[in-house]
């Protein structure tokens, strides 16, 4: 209990943060409380200690059984169920036992300890700030130009240290968010690298497709639908985009980027399984329900002379969810 320095300035070494003013100095018996062991605070909490001992003992024995069972289950490779059950039994019984020991077989209290206000006294503040400022003034401010130079050096270190920490993490977005691998003439290819032909899709069918050079691409993924056998015109300017009823939309939801993989064939809608945005195919995948703010971009298709379904061009707008630089078009 050497909480004091020789100079008499209070120095607090206790974790409780109690200043010395409130603490009884040694040898001041009038501050003390004498109790003997018959004081009710010292009695165990259990009304029947013998019984509490017995129950706690049983709990520890059960815990022993549980832990031993775990060992047996492990060596016998009895499976996760027996491992878990035996461990749970052991842990729970052990916990009940230890807790009941503390709850029933120890002094019931209550006890208290004093609490000093957190707020420091003016003297403490003054002394601390005095030391801090007076030394600082003498040692640092006298050579302020050094402090400035040091600060400048440290600032440069801080800035340049951020470069590799941040910039090395990944490439700059550049234009990658604006484009996909769909080009003029891209073959509509399924995940098994099969170029889709007109004959592959009955009416009411759909398949996830990619450009032939980006099969499996997360951004290029597209749904190819075949709701009818005649051309579909979703809006003005897209008269030729869906020949013979083959129509394709980006599979990346404009809301949060999930694959819009849910084709409702009878109602001719695409539903996003993540947040239930609903897109009307015949209206150019215009969102009709849910949080999606923009239609799914439509891929212009044509059918070549051999019956392969191909892209007239890439998407005419960035696919997927919005981003700051994307611009203001809807």
């Amino acid at each position: 209990m050497s909480d004091e320095h020789g100079n008499g300035v209070p120095v607090n070494l206790s974790p409780g943060g109690r200043p010395l003013e409130q603490r009884a100095p040694h040898g001041a018996p009038e501050q003390r409380v004498q109790v003997d062991l018959s004081a009710p605070q010292f009695q165990v909490a259990a009304k029947n200690p013998k019984r509490a001992e017995r129950t706690t003992l049983v709990l520890f024995l059960l815990a022993l059984v549980g832990f031993a069972g775990f060992g047996a289950a492990y060596t016998q490779n009895a499976g996760d169920f027996w491992l878990g059950i035996s461990m749970a039994l052991g842990m729970l019984m052990f916990g009940l036992g230890v807790a009941s020991w503390g709850m029933f077989l120890m002094p019931r209290g209550p006890f208290e300890e004093p609490r000093a206000p957190m707020q420091t006294t003016p003297d403490e503040k003054r002394l601390f700030l005095g030391d801090f400022e007076s030394r600082g003034k003498v040692a640092i401010e006298r050579r302020g130009f050094l402090a400035k130079a040091m600060g400048a050096a440290a600032a440069v270190l801080g800035i340049v240290a951020a470069f590799p920490l941040i910039r090395s993490l990944g490439p700059l977005p550049k234009k990658s968010l604006y484009t996909t691998k769909w080009r003029k003439g891209s073959y509509v290819t399924d995940i098994n690298n099969r170029r889709m032909k007109v004959s592959d899709l009955d009416v009411g069918s759909f398949v996830t497709v990619f450009p032939q050079d980006d099969v499996g691409g997360a951004i290029s993924q597209t749904v190819l639908l075949h709701p009818q056998t005649t051309d579909i015109v979703t809006m003005k300017g897209r008269e030729t985009w869906a020949p013979q009823g083959f129509i394709a939309f980006s599979k990346v939801c404009t809301h949060a980027g999930c694959p819009v993989g849910l084709y409702e064939q009878a109602t001719e809608q695409l539903l996003c399984p993540c947040h239930q945005s609903l897109f009307d195919i015949y209206a150019g995948a215009e969102p009709v329900f849910g949080p999606a703010p923009r239609p799914l971009p439509q891929l212009p298709l044509y059918i070549d002379s051999r019956g392969y379904i191909r892209a007239q061009a890439g998407y005419d707008e960035p696919v997927g969810p919005g981003f700051w630089e994307r611009g203001g078009t809807t």
């Binding site: 889709m196 032909k197 004959s199 592959d200 009955d202 064939q265």
Partner: peptide, 9 residues
């Protein structure tokens, strides 16, 4: 509402 999947798919 279920799509039909032909043998091409």
């Amino acid at each position: 509402n279920m799509p039909r999947f032909s043998s091409g798919v």
